[in-house]
Design a protein around this nucleic acid. Structure first.
Length: 705
DNA sequence: GTAGGGTTAG
C-alpha cells in the first residue's frame, strides 16, 4: 500500500472497498486496519493485517494494543480458535484482552465458551472491569444459567461496578432472560440511575414473556418520568400492542411516531408493518410499507408475512416476487415465510422453485427453512419429498418432527404418523408438545385407529406431561364420531372440564352428518349457532346433513334461515394449476373456454364409470330434485369439472393435482376412484381438511375421512 | 484497546 492513506478515516466504506488492500506496517495503521476489518466484517483484511504485523514487527512481541485489536477482531468475526490462540501466546493478558475474547463469544452465539473464558480469566487472577461484566451477563442470559448469573451479579456488587449503568442493565436483562423476574424487579427498583436501556430491557422482556400489559405500563411510566423513548422502546411498545391486540393504542403511537419523525426509522417501520398485520389491518400495514423511504429485507419479509397470515397467500407471493425484482436476496427468513404461503396455496411448483432458490442461496441447511420445506411438501401432498427434505436436514427440532408427522396425518397414513412419532420419542433429542399430540391423535382418528387414539389421549399427561387442551378434546370427539360412536362422543363432551368450543360441536356435527344421526346433529348445530350465529359453514353442514338423510324440508328450512339472517355462503370451488395458470371452477360452471371439451369428457367418463359399476350417489345433490336431475347435478361439481379439465390438458404420466376450498363430496370421491383406474392416472385432491391420493380404483384414505 | 436493550420465520 502506498501514498500513506490512513485507516484512521472511518467513514464507513462500501463493504468490499478495502478488502484487498494491504495496510502499511506501522502498528498504528495496522491497528486501524484491524478495526476496519471488524467494522466491515472482513476476516481477509484482518488476517492480512495480522500477517503484515508478524512479518514486520517480529521477533519483537506485538504491542499490547495491537494484540488486543487482533484478539478482538478474531473473536468478533467468529474465529474463536485464532482469538484464543493469540491470547494464550500473551504471557500476561490484560483484562482488555480477556474481555475482547469473552464479548466476541457472547455476541456470536457461543455463551458457554464466553462463560468458560470468564472463569479462566478469574482463575488467572485478572479482575473483571465495567466492560467485562456486561458481556458476562449477556452470556449467562443466553445460556439460561440463573445461578451463574447470580454469581456474576454478586461479584459485580462486591467490586462496586454494579452502580455502572452498563453493568446494571446487563444484570437486569440477565435476570429476566433466566426467568428470575422477581430479582429483576428488585434490581430495577434499586437502580440509582435508570437509563433508556434499562427501561427497554423491562419492556422487551415483558413482551417476550407474554406480559404485554406490563410493557405498556412501563412505557407510560417512562414518559411520566420524562424519559425519551428511542427506536427500541417504540418497537417494544408496538410488539406489546400487537401481542395484546391493542390496535387503537398502537395506531395512536403511530401518530406520535409521525410527529417525532421516528417512523422514518427502518426498524420502527418494520415494527409498524408487523403490528398492523397482527391486528389484521392489512391496508394500514401496506400503507406503511409503501411509504417507507428505505426498505430492507426485514421490511419485505414482514409484508409477506402480513399477507400470508391474513389469508392473502397470492398477494404474499406477489410481494416476494417484487422483493426479488427489487434485488432482495432470498434470506432464510423470507424463504421460510414464503414456503408457508406455498403450503397454504397447495402450490407445489412454487414450493419447488423456492426450494431451488434456497439451495442457490445456501440456506437450505437452515433449520427454519428445512422445517418449512418438510411442512410445504407435506401440505402439498408430496410426502416422499417431505421425507427427503427431513432426511437432508443437518439438525432437527420439535418443529421439524411435527411437520413430518403432520404430513402423514394429512395424508391419512396413521401407521406412518405413529411410526415417526415413536422414532421421535426414541431418538431422545426432543420431547413432544401439544401440537405433536394433536397430530398423532388426528392421525389415529383418520386412520380408524380408535383404540390407539383414545389410549394416547388418556395417557398423554402421565407419559409426556402434556395437559390436554381444547384441541385434544376436539380430536377425541372427532375420533369417536368417525368411528360411529356419536352418543359416546356426546357423553364425552358433557364431562369435559373445559367449556366446549366451536371445534368440539363442529366435530360432533360432522360425525352426525357422516352417519345420518340427525337428532344429535341438530343439538350440535344449535350449540354452534349459539356460539357463532354468523358462520355459514355450520349452517351448510346442518343443511347437508338433512339433505344426505333425504330430509329435504329441514334442509331447505336451514338454507332459508341462512338467507333470512343474511348469512352468505362462500362459493365452493376447485382449482388446478397448469402451465403457471390457475384454472378455477365452481359447480355447474360453464364459463371455461374449454367448456365444450370438458362436458364431452364428463359424458364419456360417466359412460365408462357406469360400465365399470359406478352409480351416482345422489344424496350429495343438495336440492330436492328428481333422481335423474340429481345425477346431472352431481356430475357438475367443481372438483369433477377441474378433473375433466386436467384430463384434457395435462399429458398422461403427470399426476393431476386438484385443490378444493371445501370438503370433497362423497360422490366425487367415489367417482375419482373409478376414474383413476379407468384412465390409469394418479389424482391428488387436497380439500380444506386433508389429502386424497387416488390411484388404481382406490384412495389413500381408504374411504374413511 | 474491551460493553448493555431490537424488527421478520418453521
Amino acid at each position: 500500500m502506498t501514498g500513506g492513506a490512513s485507516f484512521r478515516i472511518i467513514t464507513l466504506p462500501p463493504a468490499d472497498a478495502y478488502r484487498h488492500m494491504l495496510p502499511s506496517p506501522d502498528p498504528e495503521s495496522l491497528a486501524a486496519a484491524v478495526e476496519l476489518a471488524v467494522a466491515i466484517r472482513s476476516a481477509r483484511l484482518g488476517r492480512a493485517a495480522h500477517a503484515t504485523a508478524v512479518k514486520h514487527l517480529s521477533p519483537r512481541p506485538l504491542p499490547a494494543f495491537l494484540s488486543n485489536h487482533l484478539v478482538n477482531m478474531y473473536s468478533k468475526l467468529d474465529l474463536p480458535t485464532a482469538a484464543a490462540t493469540l491470547l494464550s501466546l500473551d504471557p500476561d493478558p490484560s483484562v482488555v484482552t480477556w474481555t475482547a475474547l469473552i464479548s466476541g463469544s457472547a455476541q456470536n452465539g457461543r455463551p458457554l465458551s464466553a462463560l468458560a473464558h470468564f472463569a479462566a480469566m478469574l482463575r488467572a487472577s485478572v479482575r473483571p472491569n465495567d466492560f467485562t461484566f456486561p458481556s458476562a451477563f449477556k452470556a449467562a442470559a443466553a445460556a439460561r444459567k440463573p445461578l451463574v448469573g447470580r454469581q456474576i451479579h454478586a461479584s459485580s456488587f462486591k467490586s462496586g461496578l454494579i452502580d455502572d449503568a452498563f453493568v446494571a442493565c446487563g444484570a437486569l436483562d440477565m435476570y429476566y432472560k433466566t426467568g428470575l423476574t422477581f430479582d429483576a424487579r428488585i434490581l430495577f427498583d434499586e437502580m440509582p440511575q435508570r437509563n433508556i436501556v434499562a427501561w427497554n430491557a423491562v419492556m422487551t422482556n415483558a413482551v417476550f414473556d407474554g406480559r404485554p400489559d406490563e410493557a405498556i405500563k412501563a412505557f407510560i411510566k417512562l414518559r411520566l418520568h420524562g424519559g425519551i423513548p428511542n427506536t427500541i422502546s417504540l418497537c417494544a411498545f408496538l410488539n406489546a400492542c400487537a401481542g395484546a391486540s391493542y390496535s387503537s393504542l398502537g395506531s395512536q403511537l403511530h401518530a406520535f411516531m409521525i410527529q417525532s419523525g421516528f417512523d422514518l426509522d427502518v426498524s420502527v417501520g418494520n415494527g409498524l408493518i408487523d403490528f398492523y398485520g397482527k391486528c389484521h389491518w392489512v391496508h394500514e400495514a401496506r400503507a406503511v410499507f409503501d411509504e417507507m423511504h428505505i426498505k430492507n429485507d426485514v421490511s419485505w419479509c414482514s409484508m409477506v408475512v402480513v399477507y400470508a397470515q391474513n389469508g392473502a397467500e397470492e398477494e404474499a407471493f406477489r410481494v416476494y416476487l417484487d422483493a426479488r425484482k427489487d434485488g432482495i436476496r432470498p434470506t432464510d427468513f423470507i424463504v421460510s415465510s414464503v414456503l408457508t404461503t406455498c403450503a397454504g396455496l397447495s402450490g407445489l411448483d412454487l414450493g419447488r422453485s423456492l426450494h431451488a432458490a434456497a439451495i442457490r442461496s445456501c440456506i437450505n441447511g437452515n433449520i427454519f427453512v428445512g422445517s418449512a420445506l418438510v411442512d410445504m411438501y407435506g401440505k402439498c401432498g408430496s410426502i416422499r419429498d417431505a421425507e427427503q427434505a427431513f432426511e437432508e436436514m443437518p439438525e432437527r427440532n420439535l418443529i421439524s418432527w411435527n411437520a413430518l408427522i403432520g404430513g402423514y396425518t394429512q395424508l391419512g397414513n396413521a401407521h406412518m404418523a405413529l411410526t415417526v412419532f415413536d422414532e421421535m420419542i426414541g431418538c431422545g433429542e426432543v420431547a413432544p408438545n401439544y401440537v405433536t399430540l394433536v397430530n398423532v391423535i388426528t392421525a389415529c382418528s383418520r386412520g380408524g385407529l380408535t383404540k390407539e387414539g383414545l389410549d394416547l389421549f388418556e395417557t398423554m399427561k402421565e407419559r409426556f406431561g402434556i395437559e390436554p387442551r381444547l384441541e385434544h378434546y376436539a380430536c377425541v370427539v372427532d375420533l369417536l364420531g368417525r368411528a360411529g360412536m356419536e352418543e359416546r362422543a356426546y357423553e364425552f363432551i358433557k364431562t369435559m372440564p373445559i367449556r366446549p368450543s366451536i371445534s368440539i360441536w363442529g366435530a360432533l356435527l360432522g360425525a352426525c352428518r357422516l352417519h345420518g344421526k340427525t337428532a344429535l346433529g341438530r343439538i350440535a348445530a344449535h350449540k354452534l349457532f349459539e356460539i357463532d350465529p354468523q358462520d355459514s359453514g355450520n349452517h351448510v353442514l346442518l343443511s347437508n346433513m338433512f339433505a344426505s338423510a333425504g330430509r329435504w324440508v329441514e334442509a331447505t328450512e336451514v338454507r332459508k334461515e341462512m338467507k333470512d339472517v343474511g348469512i352468505k355462503k362462500g362459493p365452493g370451488c376447485s382449482w388446478i394449476t397448469w402451465k403457471n395458470v390457475v384454472h378455477v371452477f365452481q359447480a355447474k360452471d360453464t364459463t371455461h373456454e374449454l367448456n365444450d371439451k370438458i362436458q364431452a369428457m364428463l359424458a364419456k367418463l360417466r359412460r365408462q364409470m357406469q360400465a365399470a359399476g359406478y352409480t351416482p350417489d345422489t344424496q350429495y345433490a343438495l336440492y330436492d330434485l328428481e333422481e335423474e336431475e340429481k345425477e346431472t347435478e352431481v356430475l357438475q361439481h367443481s372438483e369433477k369439472l377441474a378433473l375433466a379439465f386436467g384430463l384434457i390438458s395435462i399429458p398422461p404420466g403427470i399426476p393431476i393435482r386438484i385443490t378444493k376450498n371445501l370438503r370433497v363430496c362423497g360422490d366425487c370421491h367415489c367417482a375419482f376412484k373409478f376414474i383413476s383406474g379407468i384412465v390409469g392416472r394418479e389424482i391428488i385432491v387436497r380439500d380444506n381438511n386433508r389429502f386424497h391420493y387416488f390411484r388404481d380404483y382406490q384412495c389413500s384414505c381408504r374411504d374413511y375421512w
